[in-house]
């Protein structure tokens, strides 16, 4: 029996070695991440792949801009009409908000508050987006040499994108809010509600708000912002708009579906709060 087994084990020696190496690579990566240290192998491979990916991505975007009118003429005309309507509405909102800002600043000074926390967002290009359908991640053109660190918050003008999970000196990997491993404290922005829950992704186009108390005042159309609970995401960043509210089994909690404020499919430039 032994003489029959030995050749088989020898024949598949490299398979066993690579299986063990694969498991060790995963273990090593998770351990490095848990200790807040970069995984050297991942940093090297990502540093090799990032420059050509960036060049190819930039070239593709340039081509898309140059030839886009060929394919999107009708869509662009419709979008243009919608944009005009939207601009008119936003101009009205802008005037009202400007007035509110003046009042806000006056009252703030009156109360003697000092604005101590200034966010200085750092702009970054998206080098690659969702390279694998199982994970909602993006890689950006800023890294540890730009002062970015793990858990730095990534936003756009419209709202929260996610947080930095891995770094190389020149790139960083971001776990987007839509990934099933992602989560952020959420709060209803409406002044007479302020209900809080946890906003999670499920790799689809919608977010889910969990752990809302059964008596939480939340309804379709409510805008959700980050609650600031959890210590990673600052309070007040837009998450999205509630599209559906339903009660969990047992009627102890509610959950809500949320349309994200950010269009995760069209991310090209984002801002990082270092």
């Amino acid at each position: 029996m032994r003489s029959e087994r030995t050749p088989v084990a020898r024949r598949f020696q490299a398979v066993l070695v690579f299986l063990i190496l694969g498991a060790l690579a995963g273990f090593w990566h998770n351990r490095s991440m848990a200790n807040g240290k970069p995984d050297v192998l991942a940093v090297i491979l990502r540093t090799v792949i990032a420059p050509p990916a960036r060049i190819l991505g930039g070239f593709s975007r340039w081509c898309s801009v140059q030839t886009g009118w060929l394919f999107h003429g009708r869509t662009l005309a419709r979008e243009n009409t919608e944009m005009h309507a939207r601009i008119a509405q936003l101009e009205g909102d802008n005037i009202r908000l400007h007035e509110a800002e003046i009042n806000y600043n006056r009252l703030r000074l009156d109360l003697g508050f000092i604005q101590s926390a200034h966010f200085r967002p750092l702009s970054a290009d998206v080098i690659w987006r969702r390279p694998d359908p199982k994970f909602d991640t993006i890689t950006l053109s800023r890294g540890s040499s730009d002062g970015i660190h793990v858990n730095s918050v990534v936003i756009t003008r419209n709202g929260l994108v996610g947080k930095v999970t891995e770094l190389t000196p020149t790139t960083c990997s971001v776990l987007m809010l839509t990934d099933q491993n992602s989560g952020a404290g959420a709060r209803v922005q409406r002044a007479d509600s302020r209900a809080t829950g946890v906003c999670k992704g499920d790799n689809s186009h919608l977010l889910t708000v969990l752990y809302l108390p059964n008596d939480a005042d939340i309804k379709i159309g409510d805008i959700l912002v980050t609650s600031g609970l959890g210590g990673i995401f600052p309070a007040g960043i837009a998450l999205g708009t509630v599209t559906e509210v339903k009660e969990d089994e047992g009627n102890l909690l509610k959950r809500a579906k949320v349309k994200p404020a950010v269009d995760f499919d069209k991310l090209e430039e984002v801002y990082i709060l270092p």
């Binding site: 498991a23 690579a25 995963g26 990502r46 390279p131 199982k134």
Partner: peptide, 10 residues
């Protein structure tokens, strides 16, 4: 290029 930490790297 794709996997976030603790999400199936190995």
């Amino acid at each position: 290029i794709a996997a976030p930490p603790h999400a199936g790297y190995g």
